[in-house]
Design a protein around this nucleic acid. Structure first.
Lengths: 144, 144
DNA sequence: TATAAAGTCTACTAATTAGGTAGACAAATG
DNA sequence: CATTTGTCTACCTAATTAGTAGACTTTATA
């Protein structure tokens, strides 16, 4: 399961992407609307900013806004940033690969299956973006 | 990522399935061959036995053996048993469903994507078995 | 130029989980 | 009955997760 951190990050990014205006969005506003503990949310947004997904502005009229287009932020990037590997085994991770102790990868049946799972997941997570989950990527039929 | 517990469980199950004889397999033997801390392995095998996957015999000549056929043990069962949910979000879990705080599922884009990821993963994990990963399900070309 | 409204930063802390250990006990076999 | 094996209860430690406190900096604007 995704950590609360990542779950909150997705909620926050969706909320931001759904705003019509293009003023910066307040941490406090996101926190209230999405029921996310404010100090925790601060950390998360800061991390997203440092990774170059968001930008911020201090002082009155400040807040957070997108540094990259929501349509250019893959779900997989957010997950890797906050939760680390997407793969189920270290010997199958693209970004955090380490060899397994007891197993010879080239002939390990588990390795093969877990690679398939990884690829199947990534096929979705690398092509889905914040704009997609926010419902702002297509002409919008408002949600009933 | 899978916990060490689940990773060890897979190693142990593969090892057991690969034995040619049909005598019970010793905890100590699995532990040595697969480099798994023995006391930790005891717990894991016990858990697999209580769940009905394995059976055991005490005393001399004892050890663990399969209660179900390796070909009937899905990877998803082992994972659920030891690690819990396979889904990435609680609102998308088949076996441990809980509603998300801030979101209206029917119109949550994230929910939809994560359902797709779950289904893609399960398509593989529900059809792969211990026999598959042990390489004993087909006529065997020995691994080079 | 003071003040209030924002984000930033460092440093905690509490709870949970992961990973592992110790040792007495029970059952089976020969 | 002695030995070999799994069983059970109860721990323990370290890491991670989730969250909090509070002083600080920057900025707009009155």
């Amino acid at each position: 399961m995704l950590s609360m951190k990542t779950q909150y990050a997705f909620q926050a990014l969706m909320y931001m992407a759904q705003q019509q205006h293009n003023r910066p969005v307040l941490i406090a506003e996101i926190s209230e609307q999405k029921l996310i503990p404010i100090k925790f949310l601060e950390n998360i947004l800061l991390q997203l900013r440092k990774a170059g997904l968001l930008e911020s502005k201090k002082g009155k009229g400040g807040g957070y806004y997108f540094a990259k287009q929501p349509a250019d932020i893959k779900l997989s990037s957010v997950m890797r940033l906050l939760d680390g590997p997407i793969a189920l085994l270290p010997c199958v991770s693209l970004n955090w690969y380490t060899k397994c102790k007891g197993c010879e990868e080239t002939c390990c049946g588990l390795n093969k299956v877990m690679k398939d799972v990884r690829d199947a997941s990534l096929a979705i997570l690398e092509t889905s973006t914040v704009a997609d989950i926010a419902g702002t990527s297509l002409a919008k039929t408002p949600c009933i």
